[in-house]
Simulated scan of single mutants.
Amino acid sequence: MTNVNLFDLSGKIALVTGASRGIGEAIARTLAAYGAHVIVSSRKLEGCEAVVAAIRDAGGSAEALACHIGEMAQIDALFASIEKRHGRLDVLVNNAATNPYFGAIVDTDLSSFQKTVDVNIRGYFFSSVNGAKLMAKNGGGSIINVASVNGIIPGDMQGIYSITKAAVISMTHAFAKECASSGVRVNALLPGATDTKFASALVQNPAVLQRLMPHVPMQRVAQPDEMAGAVLYLASNAASYTTGTCINVDGGYLLG
């Protein structure tokens, strides 16, 4: 029997949004390490270029394309550029997200509400629309949405963020159901508390950690690299019959 590496992504074009740091950067580096040409995208080009340089230094293939997924015109321009440059897209990781408000849900202001919805729901939705259409032209692909355990159990003082992540989980199911016939698989990653700048208000707050850790059987927060393996699986041929699922990478938090 031929020894096939089911995780080999050689020849694949992968787009990772929000990839200039944290979980997105870890995912981009991992996909590149397994052979994908990775398009590193985020709002600021400089941060993306730094990740691209690191990937290339490690022997991988990558390029930087700036995009603010809270802006519809920028989403359309990003995918048009990818189609023009590569003619295809095989993997889309929707990771860019925002969480501008930390406080009581009843005190959420309209600006914070709108920004969170525009990025975390609308941005994911229309990135998936563009990605799925481009993938379908070339026989299929894999979309991975980075949601959150907060989409299952709302986080304290993170009401609107948690609501948008619940929407991402539902979105994953809806796209998976409709896009399967086009060869497009759609799954989600649900990270638990992870040591990133994005989550610093939580993981670097002793009072918050004191409340959280009793609910995490592994008794620690995750490192960004620990999220990348699940995404590699979902992006690869190892997950060829996997769609519409959510993989919890949370140290057991959702066990209750």
Rank of each mutant, 00 (worst) to 15 (best):
T2N: 09
A14D: 01
T17Y: 05
G18I: 11
S20Q: 11
I23A: 05
G24I: 06
G24E: 04
A28E: 02
T30G: 08
L31T: 09
L31S: 07
L31G: 06
A32K: 03
A32R: 01
A33N: 08
I39H: 04
S42C: 15
K44T: 15
E46G: 15
A53H: 12
A54S: 12
G59F: 01
S61T: 13
S61C: 08
A62T: 02
A64M: 02
A64Y: 02
L65E: 02
L65M: 14
A66W: 02
C67L: 10
I69W: 00
D76I: 04
A80E: 14
E83C: 11
K84E: 15
H86D: 07
L89N: 06
L92T: 07
N94Q: 09
A97N: 15
A97E: 09
A97P: 14
P100G: 14
I105R: 03
T108R: 00
L110N: 10
F113C: 13
Q114M: 09
K115R: 11
V117N: 11
V119Y: 06
V119R: 11
F125K: 01
A132C: 12
K133E: 06
K133S: 10
A136N: 02
K137F: 02
I143W: 03
V146K: 02
G151S: 07
G151K: 07
I153L: 09
G155I: 10
M157A: 15
M157D: 15
M157I: 06
I160R: 03
I160H: 04
S162I: 05
A166E: 11
A167E: 07
V168E: 03
I169M: 10
M171A: 10
F175N: 01
A180H: 01
G183M: 10
G183E: 05
G183F: 07
V184I: 15
V184A: 06
N187Y: 09
L190G: 05
L190M: 06
G192K: 00
T194Y: 02
T196A: 06
K197F: 08
A199Y: 00
L202E: 12
V203G: 00
N205E: 10
H215G: 05
Q219P: 00
Q223T: 07
Q223F: 02
A228V: 01
V231Y: 00
L232V: 11
L234K: 14
L234I: 15
Y241T: 14
T242N: 14
T243L: 03
I247F: 04
N248Q: 07
Y253A: 00
L254V: 06
L254C: 03
L254M: 07
G256W: 14
